[in-house]
Design a protein around this nucleic acid. Structure first.
Lengths: 112, 112
DNA sequence: GCTTGACATTCCTATATCGGTATGTATCAT
DNA sequence: ATGATACATACCGATATAGGAATGTCAAGC
């Protein structure tokens, strides 16, 4: 068989370095496509296609204003990755157990 | 041009679902290749090749015992992912600021 | 020695994906 | 209406990759 599909999978979406650059560039704010293009020096179709992948996996959200489209990062989409990685956190830092405890507390606070 | 290379990149190494399964299966212990094969039902070359990728990016370590090779997860290899994802943590949970504070404290404790 | 067992590696094929170029689609300005 | 701007999409070619099958390597047992 062939290579496994990557799109429609959050883990693979962030596997591409260009896509991570786009997310880093957007950061905590909102950016139009053209702003991302000029910030990173990628071509416009290249950015648009990566944004489509990120949209499909739910890592970015888009809002239209006139003929501009502003993208922002949907941090919740990264939670599956965070949770999976944190499953191994004990392997690189035993003190993370403290963080785990705090995490559990916070989660209980949020979902009463 | 063509598709960008994925191997030799931690982010892309965990993009493959099979590789994540292998890491999950090894967990916090040590497993021989044959044990992974029978646990997951993959073919032996398939597992060996995925393990090679994981070795190349430093996500697993191997120790030989007779003709067996035991693999264990090198959690430190996941730190880059954790750090990158945590950069967006504030976007999905503002309470994570508390965790960030604690993290900084812990890091200061470790590197005096 | 030879054989068996446990893995690694090589060769091969199919295909999903990436980037480039060109084109399509709206929206705004005149 | 015409043109320009902002972005999305379609089409194309190149290639890295995943999986399968076969083979290689090395240790242990006889």
């Amino acid at each position: 068989m062939a290579r496994t599909p990557t799109t429609a999978d959050v883990f693979n979406a962030i596997g591409d370095e260009h896509r991570r650059s786009i997310l880093d560039t957007i950061g905590t704010g909102e950016l139009a496509v053209g702003e991302i293009v000029s910030a990173l020096g990628f071509t416009q179709p290249q950015v648009s296609k990566h944004l489509k992948v990120l949209r499909d996996v739910g890592l970015v959200q888009c809002s239209r204003t006139g003929r501009h489209r502003h993208y922002r990062v949907n941090g919740a989409g990264l939670r599956p990755i965070d949770e999976w990685v944190r499953g191994f956190a004990a392997l690189w830092n035993e003190r993370y157990d403290l963080l785990d405890d705090l995490l559990v507390e916070l989660q209980h606070e949020e979902s009463p």
